[in-house]
Simulated assay, not measured.
Amino acid sequence: MDGAMQQIAEALRQAERILIITGAGLSADSGLPTYRGVGGLYNGHTEDGLPIEAALSGPMLQLDPALCWKYLSEIGRACIAAKPNAGHAAIAELQRRKPGCWVLTQNVDGYHLAAGSPSQRLIEIHGTLGPLFCMTCGEPSEELTEHLTRPLPPRCTCGGVLRPPVVLFEEMLPESALGRLRDELEKGFDAVVAVGTSASFAYIVEPLLRARHSGGFTAQIDPSASELSLMVDVHLAVGASDALPQLVRHIFVD
């Protein structure tokens, strides 16, 4: 077994409180590109000549909902067409066998829940793609799938534009998710592992640094090195869907 893999497996075997932080690299093995954006698809400018950060922003959803929904719907179709992979399943198995294991995900595809991760130990920091709700009256609507066969933007019976409970560019992270993360960070984690993300957002960096400062174990599982690699005890340069099932097998070997 690879030395880095062995170190991570041994640390997770001994740990009670574990935080797995996941990003787009985990869902890449389901066929979703590791793109910029809310779940992604684009680098640079869209075919409308706008940066994706502008097209997929909260202000654009208000100003030109049809344009924003053009790209939201492409993300939705990509997520619906794919499914969770062996990495998601391995994390769900780890959570099943370690009741102190939490998942914090940047992904909006819903694959952790679909793979069996318990909702009470899952923090979707960027929200999800469904169910939709009305921006005018606040009433909930059907899941995204139902609306992708209809004209966009999707509309409520009141005439208002529908949107998913997802964090667009220029929007705040959901306070409920941040609050749950803060509460769990206060309790502390014995091990924090970043999987398939190279982002150095505060909500990723803080758990890693807190764990290190308190003598806990930290690791990154990602084929490429990044700023995060310098903050962790171990960097395992392997794709998530290959590494995670192996790790779980090693952790619970008899």
Score class of each variant (00 low, 15 high):
8 I>T: 09
75 I>L: 14
125 I>D: 02
136 T>Y: 08
222 D>A: 07
218 T>W: 01
226 S>C: 04
228 L>Y: 05
146 E>C: 12
173 L>G: 00
136 T>F: 09
191 A>L: 00
37 G>Q: 07
88 H>L: 02
149 T>M: 11
181 L>K: 03
79 C>R: 09
123 I>H: 08
42 Y>S: 03
63 L>C: 12
203 Y>E: 05
148 L>G: 06
135 M>H: 12
222 D>V: 00
218 T>A: 05
169 F>M: 09
216 G>S: 03
124 E>F: 00
11 A>K: 02
202 A>F: 12
134 C>T: 01
229 S>W: 00
81 A>T: 00
235 H>P: 08
95 Q>F: 09
183 D>C: 12
191 A>D: 01
122 L>V: 00
38 V>T: 06
128 T>H: 05
30 S>N: 04
193 V>A: 08
144 L>H: 02
132 L>W: 04
195 V>W: 10
70 K>E: 09
58 G>D: 11
134 C>L: 01
59 P>F: 00
227 E>C: 14
136 T>L: 14
158 C>F: 03
154 P>V: 10
191 A>Y: 00
67 L>A: 06
4 A>C: 13
81 A>V: 01
126 H>K: 07
235 H>A: 12
174 P>F: 04
41 L>V: 08
33 P>E: 02
86 A>C: 06
145 T>Q: 13
99 P>W: 12
99 P>D: 07
167 V>I: 14
60 M>K: 06
48 D>M: 10
71 Y>W: 13
106 Q>F: 03
194 A>M: 09
129 L>K: 04
21 I>A: 10
208 L>C: 08
211 A>K: 01
145 T>V: 15
73 S>V: 11
114 A>G: 09
237 A>I: 03
34 T>L: 09
135 M>S: 15
244 L>W: 05
82 A>N: 15
214 S>V: 00
76 G>D: 04
7 Q>L: 14
51 P>E: 08
17 R>Q: 12
194 A>T: 03
116 G>H: 03
